[in-house]
Design a protein around this nucleic acid. Structure first.
Length: 353
DNA sequence: AAGCCGGGGAT
DNA sequence: ATCCCAGGCTT
């Protein structure tokens, strides 16, 4: 039987994806795409990638930008530590690598936000170096093909998958560079053929010796993550308005939405709105509420109530958190999380009334 | 090893 | 409603 890698490479040439916006790009673009694609699907990433490259076409431009500007481009993509780490890494490349992208997997992996799989992907795709990746697609393809049971989040299962991934790398024959197309093939196969729901085994180049297919276990492999009960929390967002301006505060780097701009937030059990207003000496001329809505995170669900508060004067001094008043239209261009975007868009309609 | 960190596509 | 996606970092 023809080697696993060879079958994937031939399949990739005929049936793989060849028009993704980062394909054929330099190491910077490959790196950026890999970071954006962490836990994020291709269709979601594409418009973000285009806007990002348009504003920050190279490492030097990214490094000299403000982290606020970077996070504004990341707004809505989630996992904002990725954006902060990306910016830090760009500055590190300028200072410690003289602006040249590091060219070995070992060096690439030292960049903040880059782990083993991402470093291997950049090394293989951009520099044609012989390294194995192990992302969600590859875990699914390999777990099925080799019939590996157990949740890949378990250390032992993941180690088995890494070993298998290493063992399946294409031979380096005659100096030919197959590793990039092979790496792309694994990801494309997982994304378009060996899908989670109903895999198209008929179109798979390695169906002849796939354990899961032979034993009709594709629906059981890979073993799903154990279920967890997600706690629910409640919070109030204070939409302080002065004319068409709204007050936003910068969130601390650690914690949810780190480094992003949000209205003041009152969590469950942190007192009532009246006390908060009195504490800051704000005179509210008008108060109303927008409809409550909920926002789901990986590890909890947040029910939030937006309270619109029109103030007479902008307070001169705020508390510890860095804050600013922005026109609602301008605020939509800042680094804000998705629920804040939703509230501001509702507000846009309210203000005109 | 387990928890933290977003948002959305697919079903 | 549920699962999980081109994962990495912190504890």
């Amino acid at each position: 039987m023809e080697a696993f890698a060879h079958r994937l490479i031939r399949w990739q040439r005929a049936h793989g994806r060849h028009d993704l916006p980062w394909q054929g790009g330099d190491a910077y673009r490959v790196w950026l795409s890999e970071i954006m694609l962490q836990q994020t699907q291709v269709a979601t990433v594409i418009p973000y990638f285009r806007r990002f490259i348009s504003s920050f076409p190279d490492v030097a431009t990214l490094a000299s930008a403000s982290v606020d500007d970077v996070l504004a481009h990341w707004s809505g993509l989630g996992y904002y530590a990725r954006g902060r780490n990306l910016h830090k890494a760009a500055q590190l490349i300028m200072q410690q690598h003289a602006g040249q992208f590091p060219q070995s997997m070992q060096l690439i992996e030292t960049l903040p936000g880059v782990g083993r799989s991402t470093a291997a992907a950049v090394a293989a795709l951009a520099f044609h170096q012989q390294h194995a990746i192990l992302d969600g697609n590859v875990k699914r393809v390999l777990a099925r093909w080799k019939g590996i049971a157990g949740w890949p989040g378990e250390k032992q299962v993941e180690e088995k998958l890494w070993q298998l991934a290493e063992s399946l790398l294409p031979e380096q024959a005659g100096g030919k560079q197959h590793i990039a197309i092979y790496t792309q093939a694994l990801m494309d196969l997982g994304a378009t053929v060996c899908t989670r729901g109903k895999p198209s085994c008929d179109r798979c180049p390695v169906n002849a010796d796939c354990i899961a297919k032979a034993e009709q276990r594709t629906a059981q492999l890979p073993t799903p993550r154990p279920k967890k009960i997600i706690p629910e929390k409640h919070a109030t967002f204070l939409l302080l308005l002065h004319g068409s301006d709204i007050l936003l505060q910068k969130r601390p780097e650690q914690g949810i939405w780190g480094g992003l701009w949000c209205p003041p937030q009152l969590d469950d059990g942190q007192g009532v709105v009246e006390d908060y207003l009195a504490l800051h000496g704000w005179q509210v001329a008008e108060r109303s509420e927008l409809p409550e809505f909920s926002h789901a995170f990986t590890h909890f669900k947040l029910h939030l109530t937006p309270v619109v508060l029109r103030v007479q004067e902008k307070p001169g001094r705020m508390e510890q958190a860095e804050s600013m008043w922005l026109d609602v239209g301008e605020a939509l261009l800042a680094g804000i999380p998705t629920p804040v975007r939703k509230m501001l868009q509702q507000l846009g309609g309210e203000i005109l009334i």
